[in-house]
Simulated assay, not measured.
Amino acid sequence: MSTNKTTARPAAIYKSAAGAEAIQRNYREMLHAWPVPAEELRIPTREGETFVIVSGPQDAPPLVLLHGSGANSTNWLGDIASWAQHFRTYSVDIVGEPGGSAPSRPVLGSEAIALWLDDVLAGLGISQTALVGMSLGGWHALDYSIRRPDRVTRLALLCPGGVGKQRVGWLFKAVLDRVLGRHDLARSAKLVTGLDDAHLAPVLDQVVLTFTHFNPRTEKLPVFTDAQLHSLTMPVLVIVGARDVMLNSTETARRITQNVPDATVHVLPDVGHAVLGQTATVLKFLQDN
């Protein structure tokens, strides 16, 4: 397929070839922990190959999963065993992120993201699907649902971007720590995710490894208008953490409640940007008639 002209192609999404190799090696090792039988596919798209992990019964309804920034399909290791009992799950590695997909980065706010997902769904033989998105993946899922409402049956969003204002205060704090000689990736990860030491431990090594070697997208996420949110025709579930330092979760909850016709919103107290442990809540929403 020809390259979309609205794609920004950075020199490299990794800081070095050795760093890229370390991240990819770690990813392959973590995928050994995928708790259910899975098929790995590489779907050709206009943005390059897209890596997809498929699980669940072949005749079950489809469920497409879109992970967060600086992440990959391991985002769903705690959820997939439950969801794949009821759905044919397709965990998509977003292009330009540290997973198994191409390094291209379609321009946010353009038609490019939707066109890429069109190619992915076409390659998977999916005409309609439920979508679950986290953070940046939540932005992707919202963008697609607004542009292709007839293709999305249900939409579940965990700490989605593009609704509440994107905060930058935590970035200044991280920069100050670096200037004062106290910068610590583990400390920054704890600040951003809102996890305590006990809960952070299992994922800390991966977070530190990734952001030691990976160049994340740094542009602000485009914010969807009230009219765009109001155009969503499918049932929508939004779960946010009240202590999110990256996105204004209070504003996200308010705008979704006021503008989305069929919305369910949960604000979790004492939770930061990492909205975890919502497997059962999301499953119930996906199965509601």
Score class of each variant (00 low, 15 high):
residue 159 C to N: 04
residue 201 A to V: 12
residue 148 R to P: 12
residue 174 A to I: 07
residue 162 G to V: 05
residue 215 N to S: 14
residue 190 K to T: 11
residue 210 T to V: 11
residue 112 A to Y: 07
residue 127 S to P: 02
residue 222 P to Q: 08
residue 162 G to C: 07
residue 204 L to T: 00
residue 122 A to I: 11
residue 153 T to I: 06
residue 165 K to R: 14
residue 172 F to I: 09
residue 210 T to S: 01
residue 213 H to F: 00
residue 185 L to P: 06
residue 130 A to R: 06
residue 129 T to K: 08
residue 173 K to L: 08
residue 152 V to Y: 00
residue 222 P to Y: 05
residue 185 L to F: 10
residue 124 L to G: 08
residue 152 V to A: 01
residue 187 R to M: 14
residue 196 D to I: 05
residue 205 D to R: 07
residue 183 H to W: 15
residue 197 D to S: 12
residue 157 L to Q: 00
residue 184 D to M: 06
residue 113 I to Q: 11
residue 153 T to F: 00
residue 162 G to L: 06
residue 140 H to L: 09
residue 169 G to A: 01
residue 191 L to G: 04
residue 177 D to L: 13
residue 190 K to E: 13
residue 141 A to F: 03
residue 214 F to M: 08
residue 137 G to Q: 09
residue 223 V to C: 01
residue 214 F to R: 04
residue 139 W to L: 06
residue 143 D to G: 07
residue 171 L to V: 14
residue 174 A to K: 00
residue 226 D to Y: 14
residue 159 C to G: 05
residue 120 V to I: 14
residue 215 N to V: 13
residue 167 R to Y: 09
residue 151 R to A: 04
residue 195 L to T: 07
residue 143 D to R: 04
residue 138 G to L: 00
residue 223 V to W: 03
residue 132 V to M: 04
residue 148 R to F: 11
residue 132 V to Y: 02
residue 120 V to G: 03
residue 130 A to S: 14
residue 196 D to C: 08
residue 173 K to I: 05
residue 177 D to C: 12
residue 202 P to F: 03
residue 224 F to I: 03
residue 194 G to Y: 01
residue 136 L to D: 02
residue 149 P to G: 11
residue 190 K to W: 06
residue 228 Q to F: 11
residue 219 E to V: 15
residue 228 Q to S: 12
residue 140 H to K: 11
residue 145 S to I: 02
residue 135 S to D: 05
residue 151 R to P: 14
residue 142 L to M: 07
residue 124 L to I: 05
residue 182 R to A: 10
residue 135 S to H: 05
residue 166 Q to V: 13
residue 181 G to W: 03
residue 125 G to F: 15
residue 227 A to T: 15
residue 123 G to W: 04
residue 174 A to E: 02
residue 145 S to A: 15
residue 184 D to I: 05
residue 178 R to F: 09
residue 115 L to M: 12
residue 172 F to P: 00
residue 143 D to P: 10
residue 161 G to T: 00
residue 229 L to R: 02
residue 119 D to S: 10
residue 222 P to N: 08
residue 137 G to R: 06
residue 229 L to W: 05
residue 136 L to W: 07
residue 140 H to R: 11
residue 204 L to M: 13
residue 212 T to M: 03
residue 166 Q to L: 14
residue 118 D to L: 10
residue 132 V to D: 00
residue 225 T to P: 01
residue 185 L to D: 04
residue 209 L to H: 08
residue 128 Q to N: 12
residue 131 L to W: 06
residue 164 G to Q: 12
residue 154 R to V: 07
residue 209 L to W: 06
residue 127 S to Y: 10
residue 112 A to K: 05
residue 160 P to N: 05
residue 119 D to M: 08
residue 181 G to R: 05
residue 186 A to L: 11
residue 118 D to I: 14
residue 124 L to S: 09
residue 223 V to D: 04
residue 139 W to I: 02
residue 151 R to D: 02
residue 213 H to L: 01
residue 125 G to T: 14
residue 173 K to S: 07
residue 178 R to W: 08
residue 193 T to F: 01
residue 217 R to D: 11
residue 115 L to R: 12
residue 159 C to Y: 02
residue 169 G to L: 02
residue 132 V to K: 00
residue 186 A to K: 10
residue 185 L to R: 08
residue 168 V to T: 15
residue 200 L to F: 09
residue 167 R to I: 07
residue 161 G to F: 03
residue 124 L to R: 10
residue 223 V to E: 06
residue 192 V to N: 02
residue 123 G to Q: 08
residue 113 I to S: 10
residue 163 V to E: 04
residue 219 E to T: 15
residue 157 L to F: 00
residue 218 T to A: 06
